[in-house]
Amino acid sequence: MTFSWNRIGIYGFILAGSVIILFPLYLTLTTAFKTPEESAESLLGLPSSLHIENFVRAAEMSNYFSAFFNSLLITVVSVTFIILLGSIASFAIARNQHSVFYRVMYYFFVSGLFVPFQVMMLPLVQQLSAVGMMNKWGLIMLYATYGLFQCVFLYVAYFRSIPREVEDAALIDGCGVFRMFWYIIFPMLKPMTITLIVLNIIWIWNDFLMPLVILNNAADWTLPLMQYVFESQYAADYNLAFASYLMVLAPVIAVYLFLQRHIIGGVSDGAVK
């Protein structure tokens, strides 16, 4: 490639774009470490030293660690449910496409993709409070259910690329459906499983509306919900607010720095299917 104005334009465009993407994160990072006096002096400058008082105060005010572990537990358990129940259901659906029942089941699972949560929101609150499930276990059940829509859609599409000969051979050898699934089929689904894990973690970890309507008890609050509840208390202290935002984003940023290649690859594979 030789020097050309065209190339300069291209680099100028993506550099400008990158600055726009990174600016809010730069502002969050620097403001979180500054004192109010420093921010008053220079809004965008670097902090003079790494003050961690903002973080300590924000963590104490909002009960950060409890919310962090709630988010972690809810995300891990829900994603496990989605992958396990979604993969076995998809296997049954994908391998019985000759049967009307299973074809109907496919459309039934996928139909959920188009239903906004708001349709079910008000009835669910009634339903779950009637059985005492307005807590993180009830929320996990909802994620496990609503995650299945996309999970079945993507897994069933993926099964088309997996040859059936292996299964037939295993069945003739007297291997039961369950053992065959676990030892032969599930490992072959790995690329799609990674995609689904990534998509569902991003969704559940960051979700706000479902925790807002389902989690009654402060002991169950997740990180976004905690931020929402405490937001008004940070109104007076700009630096404290940013320290709190940064603490909520930090786990995701850390994971992204290490695994970005797999995360982007996973999302991109899911989109092409």
Partner: peptide, 8 residues
């Protein structure tokens, strides 16, 4: 197959 479908 039916048992695999049931939990979901």
């Amino acid at each position: 197959y039916l048992i695999l479908l049931l939990p979901g």
